[in-house]
Design a binder for these strands. Sequence first.
DNA 1: ATCCTATGTATTCACCTGTTTACTTGCAAG
DNA 2: CTTGCAAGTAAACAGGTGAATACATAGGAT
Lengths: 205, 205
Amino acid sequence: MLTQADQEQTGPIRAKRPKRDREATRRRLLEAARDLFGEHGYDHVSVRMIAAAAGSNVALVNRYFGSKASLFGEVLAGESVLEKVVQGDPAGLPRRLAEHVVRQVHRGPSSPVPRMLDRSIGNPEILPILQQHLETMLVAPLTEQLTGPGARARATLAATIIMGGGPVRRLLGLDDLRTADPAELTERLTVMFDAALSPGVRESK
Amino acid sequence: MLTQADQEQTGPIRAKRPKRDREATRRRLLEAARDLFGEHGYDHVSVRMIAAAAGSNVALVNRYFGSKASLFGEVLAGESVLEKVVQGDPAGLPRRLAEHVVRQVHRGPSSPVPRMLDRSIGNPEILPILQQHLETMLVAPLTEQLTGPGARARATLAATIIMGGGPVRRLLGLDDLRTADPAELTERLTVMFDAALSPGVRESK
DNA sequence: ATCCTATGTATTCACCTGTTTACTTGCAAG
DNA sequence: CTTGCAAGTAAACAGGTGAATACATAGGAT
């Protein structure tokens, strides 16, 4: 994949960018793809839409990225949203995750990438790409933060809350969660994440 | 929609079913659609696939159901999986929901319908159908069971866990959750659902 | 000034999509 | 038997898809 992507500096370095700027065009395509994929999902974005949004040409998508699926993969690899949330003091992890969810509810997602996930899940062609993304971006680093047995299962459980947010928001809207008291929402989610992640099982009533 | 579906008994009642059985064909199409939609999602199932799986003809899909989207809607309306889980003693609701999720993890979903939801979310054409389904099948009955302020927001929160299960299972597989102790998993999920649903906010550590 | 290569363009390809049309056939009533 | 209608079929339609093609051209190197 991307057979023509890594040969841009064979000659001496050019200081002045030409009007026909390979890198700029590539970047515009990438950004257009990111926005459109995030908005409509993989299946409902055509390469022609991407090219048009980037003010570019259809053929360049395949020239620069090899295929639509590769372009999707590159977009996905370009951003790591949850990195800062997961990193840090393990004890505060549930609260940070909860605050992250509440933040998404009130300000909308900071990046189109999370939406790309849940709106593109149906496609078998990009399934391995999505799997790897969720694995390396969320579950693996989350698992590393956890101690005790069954860490991965607990990380999966937490991922369920995070992943469920997208579909629920799309299907039910944000209004119900927005009208709720943010502090209370954060509190509830903190308990939920804690129940998912904590080494010992908290006793239910 | 379904302009030709409700005129089957204009004449006297026929005891013997003819070889050309309208109702049987309709049912076969419906079942094939349910299975295929559940397996691959709306976008990746063509009406030709459905007709082939039902041993029928493409044109009959539109004849009997009006359109692919209407067929999808009819499939979705045909089953109400969570009804028994939501009904019953409100106090035991978190535990019943938890047991339902664990059951899905260990035995797979009893119906393709839940999978239809998360694998078909991207399509704008059937979005209103999905919205209404989630609303009437899960959120509305769940909200009714709850007391206190912000009942709908709490129901939405619980829906997040349920809806997140599908994507997570598809992207991460079931192994991690299956290897976990079912009792412990149930316990964790019970606490999670309780934190989402309970009238008062449980204090986090 | 002339080449030459990389960038960009317009067009074509082969295929699939949902839907509609014209047609054939089974089957029961007259 | 004939007639008529409902059920089923095959083909076509109009449009869209990702990808590949052949061509045009900008702009630095010679």
